[in-house]
């Protein structure tokens, strides 16, 4: 914290609040990995960290560096856009892989595979 001498008070407090809120959201999301009972329920938990947690911490970082360097530092938006667009893709693919495996094993907890093979785009 040695470089932060010329930071306004309100910016420091707002950054502290944003970083704490983001970290708390991420922690609750990861706690969901422990507490939720089945795989399909657990998939919902990490999205807390990739939406509210990430947005809040990155907003705090953008505010802090913009105030510190007295110019707009907004390249945190890039991380938000990349992670925000890619996380849904990975989660969707992971759930489909899990569903595929459960259906092959004949699990009773997932919906039956009526015409599921046609819905995977072949092109």
């Amino acid at each position: 914290m040695n470089a932060a001498g010329n930071l306004p008070t309100w910016a420091a407090l707002l950054t502290a609040l944003l970083v704490l809120v983001g970290a708390a959201a991420t922690l609750i999301g990861s706690l969901g990995l422990l507490r939720l009972g089945t795989f399909y329920a657990r998939v919902h938990a990490p999205t807390l960290g990739t939406t509210l947690g990430m947005a809040s911490i990155l907003a705090g970082s953008a505010l802090f560096f913009s105030m510190l360097e007295a110019r707009p530092v907004v390249h945190e938006i890039l991380i938000a856009v990349f992670v925000g667009l890619t996380t849904p893709v990975t989660l969707m693919l992971l759930v489909r892989a899990a569903l595929y495996r459960d259906r092959i094993e004949g699990s009773k907890e997932v919906p039956a595979a009526d015409a599921a093979e046609h819905s995977i785009p072949q092109d």
């Binding site: 470089a3 950054t15 970290a23 990995l33």
Partner: peptide
Amino acid sequence: RAQDRILGLDTLYVNAMLLLVTFGIRIGS
């Protein structure tokens, strides 16, 4: 199961990324 492990790894990546961002704020770089 394997899908649980991959989910844990994905969460680990995101958390590590956020931890790096907070390190950046702390050091001011």
